[in-house]
Computed example of a mutant assay.
Amino acid sequence: MKNEKEYMRNLNLEAAIWYLFTSAEFFEAAACECEKTMEWFGSLAISRKVSDFGRNNQIYEKFKQRARDFKRGAELARLGDYELIWEIAGCINGDVRGMMEQPLHSWMTEAEHREFERVRIGRLITYAGQIESALNNAMTGAEIFLDEGSGGDSDDNGFPGEEIVEWYNEYINFYKDPIFQKLPDPLPEYVVDTSVACRTGDEVPWTGVWYPSTGLEHHSLTFAIKGLRMQPAYKVIKTNEELEAEGGSCATPETVAVATTWHPIIPSGRQAEAEKELRAKAGELCPKTGIWKPLEPGAAQRTYKVGEAMANLGSAYGITVWCWIADC
C-alpha cells in the first residue's frame, strides 16, 4: 500500500502557515530584518571608517529602501493589494547578488563576512522566498494557465504538495534567533466553506487561503486575491525523491496544472484538537461530518455526514478504510 503519510495531511497546520506567510505582519517582519541588517552593516562600516568607500553606502541605502518597501507593501496588503510586496520579494535575490559582488573581504574579517552572507543575508532571502512563493500563483497562475498561446504552464511556482510545511520546519529553528513567528499551540481550527466556490479562471470573490476540490492528495492549498482570476491546482506527478531516483537533479517536484473548483478555508473560532487520525471502516457509521479519503491509491475523497454508512470500494487490500481529512 502507498505511504499513508500522503493521506494524513494536517489541514490546520498547512492553513496556518499559508496565512502566516501571506500576512501583513510577516511582511513587516521582513522590513524589520532589513532594518537590523542595515544597522549592523552601517555600524561595522563606520567602525572601520569605510562608510563612504566604494558601494558600501549604496548597500546601506539599499537595505533602508527595502525596509520602506516592505512596510509599504504590508500597508497595501492590508488594503487587498499584494502587487508591491510580491514585486519587492522578487527583487531581493538580485539585490543580494549585487552586494556580494563588492570587495567586502577588503575590510570585513572572515567571521564578519560569514555573518553578513550566511546569517544576515540568509534570513532576508528566506523571508523574501516564502513571500514570493506564497503569492506567485495568486499573481500569475491564472494568466499563464489560460494563455492558450503559451500552451499553459504546468510548473507550480508556489509550494507543491505539502512543501509549505517542510519549508516552515526547515527554517523555524535554523537560525539562533527564530526567523519566523512560531504558530500558536494549539493551532486554530480551520474549516472548508463549501458554500462558496470559485472555478479556475473566474474572478476571486475573497482574499485568503483556498482548498481545491481535487482534495489534498498530491495537491496543495493556495492563496488567492479578491478581484484577480483564480489559478489552477497543481498536481504533483513526480516527487523530488522520484526524480532523484531517475537521475535528475530538479529542486522541485514535477507538476501538472489542472482546472478545478476552490473553496475558502476559514478559521472556525475554535482551537484545533490535538492532531490524531480519525478512521472508519466500510460499513461503519460515519463518526464525524466532513471530507473523507480512502486509504488506497487513486480513490476519490467523499463527503459524509454523521450516521451515514461508509462505502466499501472493493479495495484490493481488503475492506476499505476511510480517513477524515477536513470539515466541509
Rank of each mutant, 00 (worst) to 15 (best):
E4F: 05
L11T: 07
L11I: 14
A15V: 15
I17E: 10
Y19H: 14
S23D: 08
F26Y: 09
F26D: 05
F27I: 07
C32F: 01
C32P: 00
E39A: 10
W40S: 00
F41H: 07
L44T: 15
I46V: 15
S47H: 13
R48L: 09
K49N: 07
V50I: 06
V50R: 04
R55M: 12
N56F: 09
Q58E: 10
K64Q: 15
R72N: 15
G73D: 02
L76W: 00
A77G: 13
E83L: 05
L84A: 05
I88D: 06
C91K: 14
N93P: 00
V96A: 02
R97Y: 13
M100G: 00
E101F: 08
P103D: 04
H105I: 10
S106Q: 07
M108L: 15
E110F: 01
E110Q: 09
E110D: 11
A111P: 02
H113R: 15
E117W: 10
E117K: 14
V119D: 15
R120F: 04
I121A: 01
A128L: 04
L135K: 12
A142P: 07
E143I: 04
E148T: 02
S150A: 06
D155W: 02
D155N: 02
E162T: 12
V165P: 03
V165G: 09
E166H: 14
W167P: 02
E170K: 14
I172D: 07
N173P: 04
F180I: 10
F180A: 11
K182P: 00
D185A: 09
E189N: 02
Y190K: 09
D193R: 09
T194I: 01
T194R: 14
T194N: 01
V196M: 11
A197Q: 04
D202C: 01
P205T: 05
W206I: 12
V209L: 06
V209Q: 08
G215P: 05
L216A: 03
L216T: 09
I225E: 11
I225N: 08
R229A: 01
V236N: 08
N240K: 10
N240C: 10
E241Q: 13
E244Y: 08
G247H: 09
G247L: 05
C250Q: 05
T260K: 04
T260W: 00
T261N: 02
T261C: 02
P264W: 00
S268C: 04
G269R: 09
A274S: 12
K276I: 03
E277P: 13
L278V: 13
R279V: 11
E284R: 15
L285C: 08
K288S: 02
E296H: 05
V306G: 00
E308M: 15
M310R: 08
A311N: 08
G314A: 14
Y317K: 11
W324G: 07
I325C: 11
A326M: 01
D327M: 03
D327I: 00
C328T: 12
